[in-house]
Design a protein around this nucleic acid. Structure first.
Lengths: 142, 142
DNA sequence: ATACGTGCAAACAATTTGCACTAAG
DNA sequence: CTTAGTGCAAATTGTTTGCACGTAT
């Protein structure tokens, strides 16, 4: 699973392996930050991949359905952004001022999820957690 | 602050106290779940409050600017939903199947936020945390 | 009296869809 | 060959805005 290449990822979800899908997965794999459909579209163009924006949306949707990518929602931003699930679990610090996104490895929620399962009989499948505030450089200025 | 009534809340943010704003705050105060602009619009209609949807949006935006309400974003839902800040800090369990939202009091993140401040020099102002999975009734069926 | 609030219709941005064509298995 | 993928343009959804009028302070 960890060592799975991009083709396998697609086959594993019963998805045909196409040039476009591979290119999108490659971009997501190489990005340290979550990307929006349009971010990806622009990067594809730079790589001379001719594609339509709606295809990017369709691919992201299907990858999301197959749980190959996660959709992340950034507070006060109307665009959805996406990350490869393979890139291991982490969260983000969002600077309110400069809008920078800082990935933070690890997750403080394992215990909490167990507690929710015990206390509410809720079967946790995942969570979304984004922390916002002022990054180091903006903290002084505010 | 806790005992503040709706008029005071508005005045406190230098906002004029109008019939519409009071009505919106009242609905938010009485709701145990976060509501979208349209949810609020519909409830207002039921209460025979004649208002335009754009006013609802404008009021929510300004209440959000003044930090009188929080905007909550539900994974895989494109609509923004809102809650009164007064209703104390809590999180939500979202059922993937029946789409029910279950509020959960308390917050597991105090320590984590301190750690972020120490380790990254990041000044935390808030966070958004939603946990999704299957609620007790849906867990069996999946 | 003045600045702020509101309705309405029109504009917008992000995303989705229908349909004819193309390519992967 | 058959099913699934794609481009394009048009449609939809959620939200925002301009402007003329109304209302709280």
């Amino acid at each position: 699973m960890e060592s799975m290449n991009l083709n396998d990822l697609l086959r594993n979800g019963n998805l045909k392996s196409t040039r476009h899908r591979i290119a999108i997965l490659k971009i997501l794999k190489e990005s340290k930050l979550p990307l929006s459909a349009e971010d990806i579209f622009i990067r594809l163009r730079k790589d001379n991949v001719v594609i339509s924006l709606s295809t990017v949306y369709r691919v992201l949707e299907i990858l999301h359905d197959k749980e190959i990518v996660v959709r992340v929602s950034i507070p006060d931003d109307s665009r959805a952004v996406y990350e490869l699930c393979g890139n291991e679990h982490h969260h983000h610090l969002l600077c309110i001022k400069c809008r920078k996104i800082l990935p933070v490895e690890g997750c403080p929620l394992e215990e909490y999820e167990k507690l929710l399962e015990d206390r509410f009989g809720f079967t946790v499948k995942g969570h979304s957690l984004e922390v916002y505030g002022y990054c180091e450089s903006c903290a002084g200025i505010k």
